[in-house]
Design a protein around this nucleic acid. Structure first.
Lengths: 198, 198
DNA sequence: ATTATATTTGAACCCTGATTCATTATTCAG
DNA sequence: CTGAATAATGAATCAGGGTTCAAATATAAT
C-alpha cells in the first residue's frame, strides 16, 4: 500500500491562492496552479473535484477562520462595545497580514461565490454581517454608540471599506502599511470626519 | 447607401449591462447579449471590437459621467467641505439610482479592469481618488474636519463602503432603499460610531 | 524480490463560447 | 427600377483550457 504524501493538497491550495490572486479566477489555468504547486496537472483532480471547488475550499477555510475568532470575541464580557469592534478589525487584519495574495483573493473573488449563493462560507458571511449588526446594536443599547447610526448600514459600510483598504494594501504593502490602515479605520469609524468637539 | 439604424449600439450596450450584471463578465455570452438586444450575434461585432471592449465602453461612459459631476463639484465655491463631500455622495447615488444592474456592473466587474490597468477610465478612477483626498485635505486645512483623519485612507474606505452598500441595494432595492443608505453613509462618515458629545 | 495496491503523471480529449465571414437583406442614388 | 454599396445575419470555425484516463511509478506487505 502506498500513502499520499499528504502535503500535496496544501501545496495545491497554496499555489491556487497565488495564481487566483495574480490572474483572477477565470484567468487562472489549472496547469499553472499545478506547475506552481510542483505536481502534475492531473494530480489537482485527485485532491479537488474541479477548479470551482478549489476556490470553495479556500473561501471555506478563510471564512471558517474568521468565524472562529468572531465567536470567541462575542463571548468576551471584559470588553466594551468599542473594544470589541476594534478587536474585530484587528482579527481580520491579522488573518491577512502575512499573506497579501490571500487578501487579494478574498477581496476580488468573493462575488463569484455570492452569485451562486451556495457553499458553507455563505452561511459564515451572512452570520458575520449579523454579528456586526448585533455588536453595534448592543453598543447603542449600552449607550456607548450614537443611536442614529443604522447597525446594518454601518456593518456593510465598514466591511466594504475594509475590503477596499485591504485591496490597496495587498497591491502595494509598502505604500499602504497595514498598521497605518488599521489605525485609520478605527479613527474614521469611531469619530468620523468632523472634529470631536464641535 | 444604407445607414446604420443608430440605436443598435445603444441597445447592445444596454443589453450588455443587464447580462453582465446578471451573469458576470465571464458568465455572459455574446449570443445572450445579442438576443437581449434583439440583434444577431454577429452584429455585436459591427459595433464593438470584442467582448472586452463592450465592458470598456460601459465603464468609460460611467466613469466619464462621474468625472464630469465631480469636476463641477470641485469648482463650486459656495459649499463648505462637508457639503461638498455630501454632494459627492449624492452624485454617485444619482448616477445609479434608476439602474440597479448598472450598479452591479460597477461594483462587481471593476477588478477585471484594474488588473490590466489600461483604459481611459483608469485615469478617471485614479483621479477620482485624488479628488477625494484633496477634498478631505482642504476640509482639514479649513478647520472643518478632524485633522487626525488620513485623507487617502478615508477616501478609499468610503469608496469601498459605498460600493458594498450599492451592491446590497442593487441586489434588493426594496430591502435597502437608496435614500436610507445615503443618509446612513453621511451619518457614519461625518460623526462616526461614538456619541457626539462624549 | 515479487506482487498487489495506491498514487501520480501529462498528453489527448472534448466542450464551450468568442469570433468570423459567406450569404442575405436593406437602402438609396441615378 | 436597377444595381451598387452598406448593414445585418447566424451557422460554421476555431482556440483555449478544464477535465479525463491509460500508462507509469512509487510504496508496502509477504
Amino acid at each position: 500500500m502506498r500513502t499520499r504524501s499528504g502535503d500535496k493538497e496544501k501545496s495545491i491550495a497554496n499555489a491556487a491562492v497565488k495564481v487566483f490572486a495574480r490572474d483572477g479566477f477565470h484567468g487562472a489555468k489549472i496547469t499553472r496552479i499545478a506547475e506552481e504547486a510542483g505536481v502534475a496537472t492531473g494530480s489537482v483532480y485527485l485532491y479537488f473535484k474541479n477548479k470551482e471547488s478549489i476556490l470553495h475550499h479556500l473561501f471555506s477555510k478563510l471564512w471558517h477562520a474568521m468565524h472562529v475568532s468572531f465567536e470567541d470575541l462575542l463571548k468576551r464580557e471584559d470588553l466594551s462595545a468599542r473594544e470589541k469592534i476594534e478587536e474585530l478589525f484587528d482579527s481580520i487584519f491579522n488573518l491577512f497580514s502575512q499573506n497579501p495574495p490571500l487578501a487579494l483573493l478574498f477581496v476580488n473573488e468573493q462575488h463569484h461565490l455570492l452569485r451562486e449563493g451556495t457553499g458553507d462560507f455563505m452561511q459564515y458571511y451572512v452570520e458575520f454581517l449579523r454579528m456586526g449588526e448585533q455588536l453595534v446594536r448592543d453598543g447603542i443599547k449600552r449607550g456607548e454608540f450614537n443611536a442614529s447610526v443604522d447597525p446594518r448600514s454601518f456593518t456593510n459600510f465598514v466591511f466594504g471599506g475594509i475590503r477596499q483598504l485591504l485591496h490597496q494594501w495587498a497591491r502595494a504593502p509598502r505604500q499602504f502599511p497595514l498598521n497605518t490602515i488599521r489605525r485609520d479605520i478605527k479613527e474614521i469609524t469611531m469619530f468620523g470626519l468632523l472634529p470631536r468637539s464641535s
